[in-house]
Nucleic acid binder design. Structure first.
Length: 280
DNA sequence: AATCTGCCTCAAGACGGG
DNA sequence: CCTTCTTGAGGCAGATT
DNA sequence: CCCGTCC
């Protein structure tokens, strides 16, 4: 999502390089849906997913199995969090996605007709879709492995943040900055990066972010809304820098709106920023 | 001149032998 | 009625100050 | 590290 790293000055995060690819931490929570996508897209051989003898896909199971073992080897006890019902999306976003998918389908067909294997692989990956069965199968695997998991009532990020805030787990592992907006005390980024990507695990402290930005929880939430979260549009022409500057000056979206030059910036009609705020 | 925003595109795991 | 669901990073052009 | 293989 769009609450991107660009919004956060480097001092707000605490990078830690470790000898192992995972830190020695007790119980981070990990959002599972993105893992599913990654495994289904990446775990392939000659363009095909790995399968059992009946032709059923096993890429996601391989991925979860080995990654979880690796974490256990490094002294981490993960708790996976699955998304509950899908988030209600903006209709514009949905349309865009449909268009992208359709474009990929056309490109795939062209590649197939031209016999361009490289492009066939590329567009096949772009069309990967995670099903309910994939989710169920992974949950079954985790059960058999004795690894706990939770199915969130709604968004996994919110659930992660809630349990981290309650002190049940060390932190939330996610690439999604919304997790921080939901109030996770500790956000672990790049937790699932493979070793060859050479990225250090990034431990972000909510408190230090607020301190570094000199913001309160309330202004931080407003900042994320201005940057464009999953729940509502952002204001065209206002990106990270202006959003930060405006909030520094005015403290809240209401105050900003009151002083914003309507000739320069167009605020979306019926802009539901208050609803978005309530969700965080 | 130096920023800043927005749009485009791409790529996405893990293991182990040599 | 069903097929549930993606996203971050980096590069670039053009607008803006 | 590189690259074939995992199913």
């Amino acid at each position: 999502m769009a609450c991107g790293g660009a919004a956060f000055p480097r001092r707000a995060s605490v990078p830690r390089r470790r000898r192992f690819q995972f830190p020695k931490l007790p119980k981070p929570r990990i959002t599972a849906s993105m893992c599913l996508y990654q495994f289904l897209i990446a775990v392939r051989s000659e363009g095909q997913n790995l399968t059992n003898e009946d032709g059923e896909t096993t890429s996601h199971l391989m991925g979860f199995f080995y990654r979880t073992l690796r974490m256990m080897d490094n002294g981490i006890k993960p708790i996976y969090v699955f998304d509950g019902k899908p988030p209600q999306m903006k209709s514009g976003e949905l349309a865009k996605r449909g268009a992208r998918r359709a474009a990929a389908e056309v490109s795939l067909k062209e590649a197939q007709e031209a016999g361009e294997q490289e492009n066939i692989d590329k567009y096949t990956r772009r069309l990967v879709r995670v099903t309910k069965e994939h989710n169920t199968e992974v949950q079954q695997l985790l059960t058999l492995m004795g690894i706990p998991f939770v199915v969130a009532p709604a968004e996994a990020e919110a659930q992660c943040a809630a349990l981290a805030a309650a002190g049940k787990v060390y932190g939330a592992a996610s690439e999604d900055m919304d997790t921080l907006t939901f109030g996770t005390p500790t956000l672990l980024r790049h937790m699932t990066y493979s070793e060859n990507r050479k990225k250090p695990i990034n431990e972000v402290s909510y408190e230090q972010v607020l301190e570094g930005l000199e913001m309160t929880k309330e202004t931080f939430v407003d900042l994320c809304i201005l940057l464009g979260c999953d729940y509502c549009e952002s204001i065209r022409g206002i990106g990270p820098h202006r959003a930060l500057a405006l909030l520094r000056e005015h403290q809240s979206i209401e105050n900003i709106l009151a002083s914003l030059d309507p000739d320069k910036f167009t605020v979306p009609e019926d802009w539901p920023y208050a609803e978005a705020r309530r969700l965080f």
